[in-house]
Amino acid sequence: MKLSKADILLMAFCTGLIVANIYYCQPLVILIAKDFNIAESYAGRITYLTQGGYALGLFLLVPLGDMFERKKQILVITGLAICALLIAGFAHSFLVLQIACVLIGASSIVPQLILPLAANLSSDENRGQTIGVIMSGLLIGILASRAISGSIGYLWGWRAMYQIAAGLCLLLLLLMAKRFPTSKPAFAGNYGQLMSSMLAYIKTQPVLREASLINFLAFSILSAFWTTMVLFLANPPFNLQTLQIGLFGIAGAAGALAAPLVGRLSDGRNPRQNLLIGLILQLLSILTFYFTGNHLYLFVVGIILIDIGQQAIHVTNQTRIYALVPEARNRLNTVFMSVSFVGASCGSAIGLYLWDLGKWPLFCLGTACVIILNMLIYKFYSKKQPA
């Protein structure tokens, strides 16, 4: 069965709304702290518990897409997400909320099941474009989730956000049950063999190693920026408030708009060229940040450049790994995305460390060095696999 444009758009829509579950909690921390009469820093634990649950689900559940029928797995995990969101929405103790957040994260890995399903049903000529469109849905979901959550929390309280999210996921469950195509599992072994096979692919697939390593460093740059930019804008000469700083996230929508174009380019003869373009855009963005001074318009230009550069790297790499071993796309995606999110975590820590040592100038110099290292890795692999 081939995917129609309507199917691809539905997948993008579902991907965006489900990935948003991970980010709803961030603007709600202050409201939750007041409700449970706890410190805001302690209430903030739900943010990394949700992310930790996501990492756990990514590693343990996504590979099962190669072992079980993908549509059924998507529906079951979405059902678990509904239950987790309802537990959070009616939680009357912070302990219960923390447990619910871990479950919300673990059950929000559905986008990483939808992407291999879409890749499996796309032709070689259109696979990159399809992934790009679905990635746009994912990015828009991330960008919109914080604004939506903050507004609903302000109007009706933090529990309402989780309850509404559960209702949205129920609607998605019905849509996916009716519209999503089925697929045939390609792995006949047991779960232990499934997990150990991922190590074999790391050893035998140089493209997977290259894509994961480049994505690790690229994600670390992006995460370092979005963590450290808050400190940069909150301090002189800008002294911006949290609400004002949040508006700069709108500039990140450029990446969502660029993803389908990047995906289309990734269907060409040499998609690795897109990686170099992405790395150059990241380096140009850091250069723009370094010379921002008092000129916020330069800062906005830098945000657009770094986000488009990230999409050029991520969508291209994801397209490349999906072309490697069709029957193992979920396992390949598990390795790729797990490494990417470890890179994001490391990037946040590195960004804050550089800020403490030398504020914004040292942050820019340090991240530029990481990008140059990524370019050297790209050059190293170019000699081994030019295509």
Rank of each mutant, 00 (worst) to 15 (best):
K178N: 10
I140N: 08
L155A: 15
L172W: 03
K184Y: 13
Y162H: 12
I142W: 01
G150P: 02
I164G: 01
Y154M: 14
L175N: 06
R179C: 12
L175W: 04
A165Y: 00
I148H: 05
D124R: 15
S136G: 00
G137P: 08
L143P: 06
R159G: 09
P181D: 10
V133Q: 00
W156N: 11
F180V: 10
S183M: 02
L138A: 10
M161R: 02
R159A: 03
W156P: 10
L155P: 07
R146D: 06
S149H: 09
I152S: 06
L174V: 13
S151G: 00
E125D: 15
S145F: 09
G153A: 00
I131T: 07
V133M: 08
I148G: 05
A177H: 13
S149C: 01
L173P: 02
R146S: 08
A186S: 14
A165H: 07
R146A: 07
L171F: 11
I152E: 09
Q129I: 00
S145E: 01
I134A: 01
K184N: 14
I142H: 06
I140C: 05
R159E: 11
A177K: 12
I164A: 01
A177Y: 11
G137L: 06
A177S: 13
L175Q: 04
L139F: 09
A147W: 08
L138M: 15
S183D: 15
L172H: 07
R146E: 03
L143Y: 05
Q129L: 11
R127Q: 14
G137S: 02
N126E: 15
E125K: 15
G141D: 04
A165D: 05
I152H: 08
W156G: 10
I148V: 09
R146H: 06
A177R: 11
A160K: 02
L170Q: 02
Y154A: 15
Q129T: 06
L143S: 09
S145L: 01
F180P: 07
N126T: 15
G141P: 10
I164L: 12
L171K: 04
I131R: 07
A166L: 04
I140M: 08
M176N: 11
M161F: 08
M161E: 11
L172S: 05
S149F: 10
I142M: 12
L138E: 05
A166G: 07
K178E: 11
G167R: 04
L143W: 09
L168F: 07
S151I: 13
S149Q: 10
M135V: 14
R146C: 06
S136F: 02
G157V: 00
S145N: 09
